[in-house]
């Protein structure tokens, strides 16, 4: 299996507000994380809130660079995070899709080929061409997950985006993401849904306090997580 992404001793620290600096508080962030991602591999990341999972994904997505260490990769990378982020209430669903696609670095032609599929999956029908301010929150979520999962990169990064919409749409979304995972070269997924992580990941990394506390087979990682953290989130 060839390596498509290599993370070497990557660290980044969020700046501390001045009043906390005097207390010698440790800055939040990611500290000295190293791992490799193989082609076709699905790597899960689990950990408590604030353990650095999303920060690590943002660095891998190229949103900000690490303070130390190096990230090496080949192929296109795309981060699926915050469904509906960047949508505008005055634009129609269709216009918002074009804007979102452009923000993801897609060309107009690429979005043209996907727009009908996005419309069909969102089940918004005639609402698709109405301003977003006329949508219910569930409809906004449908549009968000539909457009966000429409693009298939070489390396897909997913940050906890499956808990939106009603029960039937959530199930449909999960299937869609599984299809996206199958269609993408390699995937890194952050989720609190441990059962799903066990079923789809080839390896799981446990993050604690910004560090990679464990990385290995899903069952071993979940056992490590369960034994170490009493307040783990039940699926």
């Amino acid at each position: 299996m060839s390596i498509v992404l290599k993370c070497e001793q990557v660290s980044v620290a969020y700046p501390l507000p001045r009043k906390f600096r005097k207390l010698n508080a440790k800055p939040a962030g990611v500290h000295d994380v190293s791992f490799e991602l193989g082609e076709g591999e699905v790597l899960g990341i689990i950990g408590k809130n604030g353990s650095g999972k999303s920060t690590l994904l943002k660095m891998l997505a190229g949103i900000f660079p690490p303070d130390q260490g190096e990230i090496l990769m080949r192929g296109s990378v795309s981060l699926l995070s915050g469904v509906g982020v960047g949508f505008n209430g005055e634009l129609t669903g269709r216009e918002n899709c074009y804007l979102y696609g452009a923000l993801m670095g897609r060309t107009k032609e690429q979005i043209d080929t996907l727009i009908d599929e996005v419309k069909a999956f969102s089940e918004l029908e005639h609402f698709f061409d109405r301003p977003l301010r006329m949508y219910s929150s569930g409809m906004k979520s449908r549009l968000g997950i539909s457009v966000a999962t429409a693009f298939r990169p070489d390396i897909l990064l997913i940050d906890e985006v499956l808990g939106v919409g009603d029960a039937s749409f959530r199930e449909k979304s999960k299937k869609r993401v599984r299809g996206l995972i199958d269609g993408s070269g390699s995937v890194i997924i952050v989720s609190h849904s441990l059962a799903m992580m066990a079923s789809i990941c080839s390896r799981v990394m446990v993050m604690d306090d910004g560090k990679a506390a464990f990385i290995g087979a899903p069952e071993e990682a979940l056992a490590f997580y369960s034994s170490d953290f009493n307040d783990l989130n039940q699926d």
Binding site: A61, V77, L79, S81, G82, V85, G86, L103, M104, G105
Partner: peptide, 9 residues
Amino acid sequence: RNLFQFARV
């Protein structure tokens, strides 16, 4: 800042 959550432009 909300667009920098995912935008790679």
